[in-house]
Design a protein around this nucleic acid. Structure first.
Lengths: 336, 336
DNA sequence: CGCGTTTACGTCGTTCGTAACGATA
DNA sequence: TATCGTTACGAACGACGTAAACGCG
């Protein structure tokens, strides 16, 4: 058995059981790949694939087991290379991040700007998607980091590090009556107006509805969107009152919009950054987390390299007070 | 990076950083091993070992990480081979078991006789030791199965399958006054006599002392041994009354000894069979478990191949009633 | 006949074992 | 000088790529 054979095997699977395509991807000849597969099957004494004539048909039960373990092996090989590069102080590599719109649009730009400055040679891949899409990318081992809010159960393949809290902000046109309100805004106020907010899957949405229900109110949600930009657009059009994440308050909005803090009206949300359980965390990855969540100590970050379960993570951050992220004012304020 | 290099690396470590010894063990030439190590270090760009002159001095921090992951990789390679052999219906292989004296002497002989008959080509290694020694063997990855009683926390590297319950038996010479007792034996009776029993580390010993203490009694333990044979020897000599595991009652003892059931006097113990978390369970391994604990269903055994945590095991056997193992009468009786 | 796989074969790089050399205690 | 690791070198092996044959739709 050779590592190359396992690599070829995985490539064949990842290219739809097409050996020619796999060979292209591997920058080698097709007969070579074919032969190695044959040798592997002969050595193991079992068929990894069923054959339809000469073509590969499907993965056999035994084949699937071998493939799963091969992936694990190749991942560990990758990990050895990673930590070697890290010890060698190399600052090249790849960092693939999947995240939601809010993070990508309002939170990450600053982080990524700094990161690119510090690690210009690291190849940065940023993928935007819904929680479900992010979860899919995690399952497919396509990404290293994910950043999202809530939905812990979708991400069993990641260790989740809590990063910051956030509340909601109410967004209305400057001349809107709620903008003139002298007293603190209440849920009852909101229930009097048509609302524009996030679609369900974004996470925490149902908790929004529940907050109204607990006071016997029924909100009038006239429009839902996936991202705050769209919401703000419709708020500008006078379609209704917007409810967005506090980070989504943009200073540029102040020209025609007013953002009203809604702390206390809805349950506070927590955004986490998660990394794949089976990768070695390289120096630049830890530094990315540090840029994203500066309150995390270097010591805590080092520890994350040794955790064995989510419970270890939880223990590690149990006594850490997370900051609460605001919007335009931009600075974070310590949580109560 | 090649699997061979990782294999060589591990061999070097396992032979005390002596390349010559490693080469001998690997049935290859010493310069070959030396060269592969050098190539690996060059490829990774880091020193895996410190050098004292030309000799290897110690493992570097980076080296240890690489070694750990290499072991994992080699284990998975082994697993692939294992499951290939299993699919191929091969009935050759190795099964290394570590266990305590009581199991090895009184319980396993029957099991192993049957197993050898069924799988004559499987290489069987049986190691006897204390719980601690067994735990050491587990840590060193030297064994596949362990069989013992109690001390769950020593064996975090194993999945433990509960196998049977057992009580204690009181062993006295035939002419001993306790042998003539018409009524049921009590702890008070025992406290009246000098006792001969297991040493502490055997597990469950402290619970024995506690049983006396709960009734305000102080047992007079005049001799402790690691195994029942020694205990019985001293009982024969009239040194005292023996307290042994119920399995340790041997029919051959009936000539000069009387065994009295002590159900209820002491807390019931549970013997488990544990297997390494990181190995693929081969057919013959499952069959060994089935011989050892016949009440376990084939279906349950199949399931054990897919468990991911001890909690899964616990769930799997939650509703299973374990048999209680007796001694000379030999048959097992269903638990209450 | 196109697509994809296998077979055949020549080339090249790698590994292996033997032998000689170097360093250390 | 005994032990252990490195260097050197020729032989054997294995991987790779090209070319051609094969099977299926």
């Amino acid at each position: 058995m050779k590592l190359q054979q396992l690599k070829y095997l995985i490539a064949i699977v990842d290219n739809g059981l097409n050996i020619t395509a796999a060979a292209d991807r591997l920058y080698t000849s097709q007969p070579g790949v074919s032969k190695q597969l044959k040798l592997l099957e002969e050595e193991l004494g079992l068929q990894l694939f069923t054959r339809k004539g000469k073509s590969l048909g499907a993965v056999t039960a035994a084949g699937q087991q071998v493939i799963d373990r091969s992936r694990l092996i190749m991942q560990e090989v990758e990990n050895i290379r990673s930590l070697a590069s890290d010890y060698y102080q190399e600052e090249e590599g790849t960092l693939s991040i999947a995240t939601t719109h809010t993070q990508a649009r309002y939170v990450l730009p600053d982080v990524i700007r700094e990161f690119r400055e510090r690690y210009p040679k690291v190849n940065l891949n940023l993928h935007q998607g819904t929680s479900e899409q992010i979860a899919d990318m995690v399952s497919a081992n396509e990404i290293d980091f994910a950043i999202a809010t809530g939905s812990h159960d979708l991400f069993s393949g990641l260790y989740l590090v809590p990063s910051y809290h956030w509340d909601r902000k109410i967004v209305v046109p400057k001349e809107h009556e709620l903008a003139q309100l002298e007293r603190k805004l209440t849920l009852d106020d909101l229930a009097q107006h048509p609302l524009v907010t996030y679609v369900f899957s974004f996470g925490g949405q149902s908790s929004l509805k529940r907050a109204f229900a607990e006071q016997g109110l029924e909100p009038d949600v006239v429009f839902t969107a996936r991202d705050a930009d769209v919401i703000k657009t419709y708020v500008r059009m006078g379609l209704g009152v917007g409810i967005v994440a506090s980070m989504a308050e943009d200073c540029a909005d102040q020209q025609d919009l007013t953002a009203i803090g809604a702390e206390g009206l809805f349950p506070r949300s927590t955004t986490w950054i998660g990394f794949r359980k089976d990768i070695v965390l390289r120096r630049y990855m830890l530094d990315f987390v540090k840029l994203f969540a500066p309150h995390i100590t270097s010591d805590q970050l080092e520890q994350t390299r040794n955790v064995r379960s989510q419970a270890d993570i939880d223990k590690l951050f149990a006594s850490t007070t997370l900051p609460v992220r605001g919007g335009c004012s931009d600075g974070m304020t310590a949580a109560a």
